[in-house]
Nucleic acid binder design. Structure first.
Lengths: 206, 206
DNA sequence: AACAATACTTACCGGTCAGTAACATGTCAA
DNA sequence: TTGACATGTTACTGACCGGTAAGTATTGTT
């Protein structure tokens, strides 16, 4: 009868949440894992922050490890959505799609990434090669690399493989350096570097 | 009286260790933290692997957090030793020192870094900005960046700041990508990229 | 109204963790 | 021999963890 005696903080964060418990848990777990680290967040804290309880969490997720993997999979789905938007905005224009992505990671994505890349952090926290999250991480990064190579190739840029790998490493380095040095370190020059890279690999002859 | 009933594995690893307990603890803690992750390793395991016990560990280190910070500081000292060797091998030759370092990270250091960069992993595992290890991490990465910029500048390369930051990000990305994609991913091309970078920024005129 | 599915509550289990206390050794120097 | 000091041993505390048990409340459907 009486309303739940939850703290205001939780009530407020819960107010911004809706949908079935599973979605709420997933959403809040992603946020907590990213901001506080995976090991530092207990399942009780996740359930409480999601406005539910541990039992419901375990009814939807087999274990904490599987929850971790599903959180990363949700990130993957989100990023794939962004890619689809780029493809829709520049149909048949590989260079346009590439620039969209470069702007996306270089300007937008780096701003709100004080804790770096969620996948890299997860890999750092989960050394076990058999952890279910590892599959998601490895596959996501490989797929990203593959997409970049394909796009550089379609765009007719010279040495597309090498160019794509350069972009990949620069972006990875930028996101991790935000966590170690800070956002005003080398990462702040990422957009400039990426633009320079594309210019360097532009087809010269013909 | 009776020799310690340690397992053969520990006895073997202990055989390779000598010196006072403090050194042994530091050495073995660095290895365990790096390979298994910080949260995954307990102080008991560290003490046992070092052929000693928890009490002795706490007599030498105020807490696990301070031990973590000291482990990273030991890494810093080791890397500074490498830098000093480069300077000794190429006195007054900034470009030679730079190439030594590029070869060091590009060929040697990446081979045995399956778990990526110890500093980045530590940062990922320790989100608390006030953790004693954070100071070590931030200072080390900033100092590395500073050294690179100074070296590129002394070597007379064009746009030394931008070049140094490119190198920095590429190296950071390479080490982290080893953990996510693997050593046969983009990281395998790091030496090629670094050499290309230096060539691109070589002084053209005069 | 009756039912089934889902969600919530409370309490617990076994295990591990960081850190401490009290005491037992060994060792080296005076 | 004695004493000082670093180290080793055992046992403990209090907290937290992931995960489970058993029972209750809520909700939607028919």
């Amino acid at each position: 009868m009486h309303s739940q005696p939850v703290a205001e903080k939780e009530a407020a964060s819960k107010a911004a949440l809706d949908g079935p418990p599973r979605e709420r848990i997933l959403k809040v777990a992603r946020d907590l894992f990213y901001r506080q680290g995976i090991h530092a967040v207990g399942v009780d804290a996740i359930a409480a922050a999601a406005g539910t309880n541990k039992m419901t969490l375990y009814r939807h997720f087999g274990s904490k490890d599987e929850l971790i993997a599903e959180c990363l999979a949700a990130y993957v789905a989100e990023l794939e959505g962004a890619w689809n938007e780029f493809a829709k905005k520049h149909p048949g224009d590989a260079l346009g799609q590439l620039h969209s992505w470069l702007r996306y990671v270089g300007e937008f994505k780096l701003q709100q990434a004080e804790r770096g890349c969620a996948f890299i952090n997860a890999a750092a926290e989960l050394p076990d090669k058999n952890h279910p999250a590892r599959r998601v991480i490895e596959q996501h990064k490989s797929e990203l690399r593959r997409k970049l190579i394909a796009l550089c190739d379609e765009a007719g840029l010279v040495e597309p493989d090498l160019l794509a790998d350069k972009m990949f490493l620069l972006c990875e380095g930028a996101r991790t350096s935000i966590q170690s040095i800070g956002p005003n370190g080398p990462a702040s020059r990422l957009p400039q570097m990426l633009d320079g890279l594309v210019a360097d690999h532009a087809p010269r002859k013909s």
